[in-house]
């Protein structure tokens, strides 16, 4: 079989599975609507605080008031998608529907890519809801859309891509839904905890820390700089946000590039693991 024919078969498999998954997410599921609702609810609380501040003090000292609510919205929806991705392969393994798919013309790469594309499309559709919401907010509050808002929304797609591909990677490691949830939550919470701890310790003056805490800070710093920073999808989020808020184009570009590289690597690892471990439960 020549490469052209092979790719055409793979594209068909990706197209058909993505179509089914999208239908399943938006027609049969309520999770996505719940995630949109929660994201927007939290954003609304933040925006309400801003508005309360204006009401109390008569002004708001902030350049881009819509950016932080958008960041929170993107973070929650990406977290939801990462959780969904972490279940997507293991669910099919657990229910053994993947076996029926593999009776037919599909390979491991098409299967993983279809899952990835579906989740990215879900994020893009969610973004449409968010944009509509922020347009409405802008119209009602006079909070203006800045260029950095546009940059952040574009960047969020790449950051969601990191989260999704990370979820897929975890999903390829497990064969049961329950194990996927446990693995996902323990790893993401672990990352989150280390990141928080690193933030707290690195922002604390050394003279305020006792010797054991200084050692701990050094260890965490090394661990964070050399490991977590590159493995955790959250740190890509943080770097991206920093780049947008500082308005440094080079950093912004690096953030997009590194997110793409991270996603590609995670997808490749997922395919290889799925191939190695097999699809049978």
């Amino acid at each position: 079989m020549n490469i052209k024919e092979r790719v055409s078969h793979q594209i068909n498999a990706v197209r058909v599975i993505t179509k089914r998954e999208l239908k399943s997410t938006f027609i049969y599921g309520i999770g996505v609507y719940l995630a949109i609702f929660i994201s927007l609810l939290i954003s609304s609380f933040i925006l309400k605080n801003y508005l309360d501040g204006i009401k109390d003090k008569g002004m708001l000292m902030m350049t881009d008031p819509l950016n932080y609510p958008l960041y929170i919205t993107a973070l929650i929806s990406s977290f939801y998608l990462a959780l969904m991705s972490s279940l997507s392969i293991s669910r099919e393994k657990d229910h053994r529907t993947i076996e029926v798919l593999f009776y037919g013309p599909i390979d491991h790469a098409s299967f993983v890519i279809a899952k990835y594309i579906n989740d990215i499309l879900v994020y893009l559709i969610m973004t449409l809801f968010f944009l509509a919401y922020f347009f409405l907010i802008s119209f009602l509050t006079n909070f203006t859309f800045s260029f950095s808002f546009v940059k952040l929304i574009i960047l969020s797609i790449f950051l969601a891509s990191c989260m999704i591909s990370f979820g897929l990677f975890l999903s390829s490691l497990t064969t049961r839904i329950r194990s996927s949830i446990i693995l996902f939550l323990s790893i993401t919470l672990g990352f989150f905890a280390i990141q928080m701890l690193y933030g707290i310790l690195s922002n604390t003056k050394p003279e305020l820390l006792s010797t054991p805490f200084l050692y701990l800070r050094n260890i965490i710093e090394v661990f964070y700089r050399w490991c977590i920073q590159w493995i955790s999808p959250f740190s890509y989020f943080d770097r991206g946000l920093k780049a947008v808020s500082l308005g440094i184009y080079k950093e912004y570009g690096i953030s997009i590039g590194s997110s793409l590289l991270y996603s590609a690597l995670m997808i490749i690892f997922s395919i290889l693991i799925l191939k190695k471990k097999g699809i049978v439960k």
Binding site: E5, R96, P105
Partner: peptide, 23 residues
């Protein structure tokens, strides 16, 4: 593996349990 996709398209499989997308 010589002609993976075309061969797969020429085979039909029924298993003991169907593992359907039940929704």
């Amino acid at each position: 593996y010589e002609d993976y996709f075309n061969i797969k398209r020429r085979i039909g499989v029924v298993s003991e349990k169907q593992y359907l997308y039940e929704e």
